[in-house]
């Protein structure tokens, strides 16, 4: 089991500045209205630092990085 980080967006707080997609284009794209889309929320280790900066740069603190343990198989 490994510990990794998950990107989460507070959809109510998000105001669509798009800075996160600019700072972390590897993981975040924008939809047609300018709101972030995160197809894969697990942050690879080599992108952790960039992910933390994208989180810190969000003008409305809507992006979060949660540590989570995974590797345990869930049903399905």
């Amino acid at each position: 089991m490994t510990i990794s980080s998950l990107l989460r967006i507070d959809r109510i707080a998000c105001d669509g500045h798009g800075l996160c997609a600019d700072l972390l284009p590897e993981l975040i794209t924008l939809d047609e209205w300018g709101y972030p889309v995160i197809p894969l929320s697990v942050v690879p280790h080599e992108l952790e630092r960039h992910a933390r900066r994208a989180v810190a740069a969000c003008p409305v603190l809507a992006l979060r990085l949660d540590s989570t343990a995974h590797g345990v198989r869930r049903g399905g």
């Binding site: 600019d22 700072l23 284009p25 960039h50 810190a56 740069a57 603190l61």
Partner: peptide, 17 residues
């Protein structure tokens, strides 16, 4: 982008809340 991305990444750390 991409120059903005590269530079903002480098300086953003100094200005986080």
């Amino acid at each position: 982008a991409p120059d903005h991305t590269r530079i903002r990444r480098l300086v953003s750390k100094a200005f986080t809340p």
